[in-house]
Simulated assay, not measured.
Amino acid sequence: MNAPFRFGPHVMEARASHQPIVALETVVVAFGLPRPANLQVALEMEEAVRAEGAVPATIGLLDGQVVIGLTPDELERFAEDAQVVKVSRRDLPIVLARRGIGATTVAATVWAAARAGIPVVATGGIGGVHRGAPYDVSNDLPTLAAEPVLVVCSGAKAILDLRATREWLETHGIPILGWGVETLPAFYSASSGLPVDARVDSAEEAAAIARTHWALGGKGILVAVPPPASLALPMEPLEEILQEALREAEERRVQGWEVTPFLLARMAERTAGESVQVNRALLLENARIAARIARALAE
């Protein structure tokens, strides 16, 4: 590895003893949830991974290093420091050279996990193709097409063009496995109505498909987990809220990376916090399932 990597003590121990490891991102800590829930959920995700017999490795950029396995004190910095910046693949050299504090997106987390030999990442929702702008594609997608990592998620974020994102994944050979379902989840909602490539009902089944995929030269693979049924929100009212938020974003000239947090904040306000509850629940469930799959891959 040419980049300046540093492993947390618990991850170093896990690597030495060949324990299964699950990589976690830090954008959700820095930008994805309001305080103090952001830090609480990050710690709960790590505990969910441990409870399933794997070791969590939350990834972030600190002091010119890619840290694989932040300590609790370091993680608190990502939850509270106003200087934290969002880091995708293109931002890595800039933030590292300037010794800044950078919260990793799915793309940056997958990139780092692949170089650290960690085959499983857990997150909430991946990025994708933006609505009304098919040329605007999140770097999460090309990174998945380039790195042999399995990502456990609840589909792409609901604010995106889910059909176009699904087509992009198919074109670039990224299999989508539905965890106990035949249709792709829509983040806050149980189903987008779009088909997955195969349903899996166990970690062992997902691991077997992933091993075969990688043996054939494949790269990224998704395991899509629906949000808990008791909390999942219906798509129709969410779509109305989203369309209203998109119009407001256009009127306010919200652009670039600021669009996603703006829309997510509006969703939280207009669902009276229900969307935040769903987000929190699916993050924990995805961490648990990722740990089970990591264990199955390690056997």
Rank of each mutant, 00 (worst) to 15 (best):
Phe262Asn: 10
Thr71Asp: 12
Val200Tyr: 02
Arg247Lys: 11
Gly173Thr: 04
Cys153Ile: 11
Glu236His: 06
Gly64His: 01
Leu263Ser: 05
Pro148Arg: 10
Ile21Pro: 01
Leu246Lys: 09
Arg252Leu: 15
Asp197Val: 02
Val120Leu: 00
Asp81Ile: 06
Ile293Pro: 02
Leu264Asn: 04
Leu160Asp: 09
His130Met: 10
Val225Cys: 13
Glu167Ile: 02
Leu162Gln: 07
Phe7Gly: 04
Thr71Glu: 15
Glu46Met: 06
Ala114Gly: 13
Asp201Ala: 11
Pro148Ile: 14
Ala268Ser: 11
Ile241Glu: 09
Ala16His: 09
Pro234His: 05
Leu231Met: 04
Glu204Asp: 12
Arg99Ala: 12
Arg292Val: 03
His18Lys: 14
Arg280Gly: 01
Ala116Asn: 02
Thr171Tyr: 02
Leu194Ile: 02
Arg6Met: 13
Ala23Gln: 03
Val106Ile: 14
Arg131Lys: 14
Val120Phe: 08
Gly53Met: 02
Arg199Gly: 12
Ala232Arg: 00
Val120His: 04
Thr71Gly: 10
Glu285Trp: 10
Val149Cys: 14
Leu282Ala: 12
Ser138Ile: 13
Gly217Pro: 07
Ile289Gln: 00
Gly256Ala: 15
Pro234Phe: 04
Pro34Leu: 01
Val149Gly: 02
Glu25His: 13
Ala249Asp: 15
His172Cys: 10
Val84Gln: 00
Ala287Asp: 08
Pro185Leu: 00
Ser17Gly: 01
Val41Lys: 04
Leu24Ser: 05
Gln40Ser: 13
Arg253Gln: 15
Leu177Thr: 06
Gly132Glu: 09
Ala116Glu: 01
Gln277Asn: 12
Ala146Val: 08
Pro93Val: 11
